[in-house]
Design a protein around this nucleic acid. Structure first.
Lengths: 187, 187
DNA sequence: TGTACCTATATGCGAAATCCTATAAAAAGC
DNA sequence: GCTTTTTATAGGATTTCGCATATAGGTACA
């Protein structure tokens, strides 16, 4: 499963389950989600398979931290996944499915739906764009080419988020306009 | 769960599990996937809950077809879902997760990965754009406002797919260019 | 004529993944 | 002490995935 591979990817640098959850909230939110219980369980399983190593550290502010890093076998597993090429066909977009059937809702609800959608998409876009901006400004003249390999690829993915959310916001805007135009015509 | 609601949405018009599977392949592929077994089970469950009605028809070319339509309770359930507003946070994008960790792969593989990605995205875009084109051409002057409500909202969703895939193709192109530029710099 | 394969159609079963919710314990802040 | 934050874990319910099987009619071909 993909969560396994994602964890292996993250664990190039040591981190605890709790740390990883934070990263999911911040970095991965726009293309993946996982809850704490799921993460802990997956970590335990990967350790049992010898793909992760664990050490226990005292925490400054809570119970002992179990810090994981991937093993050579873990890196290999990750590489195999990447070598498969891009995996398609697993996309799940609940809000688009809803939009598809929106004819079933009352007219005011349809508008409210698209307004809420635009709102959320704009938030996402703003968040991502801010991170991107920040990153770009601290980079030199030949940014992003001067990043190290891992950062470079993270940056490309971030850029994708920026581009995609921008396109989506524009689409939601245009859709709202079309809905309004259509409603006016009816009266 | 969302598959249930999607089935209710589709079953405004009567269809068999097999028919629905076809629709998933054609229409929903870019934002949802479900396999046959899953669909049949969900249909059976919805019928048991009184949200769908079934009638059996002889088929021209196979076993009897079980054709479902949604009941009033089914429509109500669908409306409740839409009234919740857009559901976010369920997005799963395997290929982006892979892209994020691409530093782990060998340089040629990274390029191959992005080329395959661009390829697939272009395919998606071409498919969606063709459907859109077709639809638009058969529509009159005030297209899409002259569509009926259900078609109108399907069209908006389709348009979303066109816009999104276009943005993604552009992104993949730009990324490939960046990867190449970066590689040249190294030599 | 038969038989082998193809498509349409439906189902069963088990494994895996996901989600949700509750519990617990340790340190810090008030 | 009480609350909040950090950190980890358990258990069950629900959903999803993957594969195998069944059945009926059509088509191609030996």
């Amino acid at each position: 499963m993909s969560l396994d591979r994602i964890l292996l990817g993250i664990l190039r640098k040591p981190a605890s389950g709790y740390d990883i959850k934070q990263q999911f909230e911040k970095v991965f939110r726009h293309f993946w989600s996982a809850d704490l219980a799921q993460i802990y369980r997956a970590l335990a399983k990967l350790e049992k398979e010898g793909l992760l190593e664990r050490r226990t550290e005292p925490s400054a502010r809570g119970p002992d931290r179990k810090v994981y890093t991937r093993t050579a076998a873990g890196s290999e597993r990750l590489r195999e996944w990447l070598a498969e090429g891009p995996v398609f066909g697993t996309e799940k977009f609940t809000y688009l499915a809803q939009a598809f059937f929106l004819a079933e809702a009352a007219p005011e609800e349809r508008i409210a739906f698209y307004e809420a959608l635009r709102e959320r998409l704009m938030e996402q876009h703003a968040t991502l764009a801010a991170i991107e901006q920040n990153w770009r400004q601290s980079g030199g003249a030949d940014f992003p080419a001067n990043l190290d390999e891992a950062d470079f690829h993270s940056y490309l993915t971030l850029d994708m988020g920026v581009q995609k959310t921008r396109a989506l916001v524009e689409w939601a805007d245009a859709s709202l306009a079309r809905i309004h135009a259509r409603t006016r015509k009816r009266n």
